[in-house]
Amino acid sequence: MSATLQQVVNLARIGFKGPNAAAWLGEQGIPLPERANSWCVTGDDEQDICVRLGASEFLLERGDGNALRKLQAEIAAHIPGVYPVLREDCAFVIAGDAADDVLAQMCNVNFAALRAEAREAVMTLMIGVAVTVVPQGNAAQRRYRLWCDPTFGDYVWSSLNEVAGPYLIDTKSPGGAR
């Protein structure tokens, strides 16, 4: 059993919220998840994603920042019913067959039972901190993307390392989400 932990720093990130956010993002050609609390791929692989948080809030993360900068420029013109959300989160990736064991020591959500194809996004409390967790990969190769408030970043990162310590084969910081 092994796990890897990574801090994600190479991805651009932006958030939108509001009653018209879904319609407007659709007009901008961004693929959107249909259900609340789910995610979809917006680029070539599972790195570029759009997460729908609740009904009317979206988190976009991409390797190529240009597309997001374009959205940012558009929104600066104050689109009715679409509000930008500053996303300076700390982002992590936990992968490996021990990933579920690591999460089970920190969070009371049954991540192992989530089906990969359902593409669910989970908002929960982990070690006392609000986090968003997106399971990726497949049953054999599970990978979790995790976001938290950046001011909790050091605490979450050091706790992850402490819990995952016995399983760690490679801790990269910084790294990517791929």
């Binding site: 009371n108 989970v122 908002m123 409390l125």
Partner: peptide, 11 residues
């Protein structure tokens, strides 16, 4: 109604 069944410590 949004997040499904969770322990009360999340509320």
């Amino acid at each position: 109604p949004l997040n499904g069944v969770r322990p009360v410590s999340e509320f």
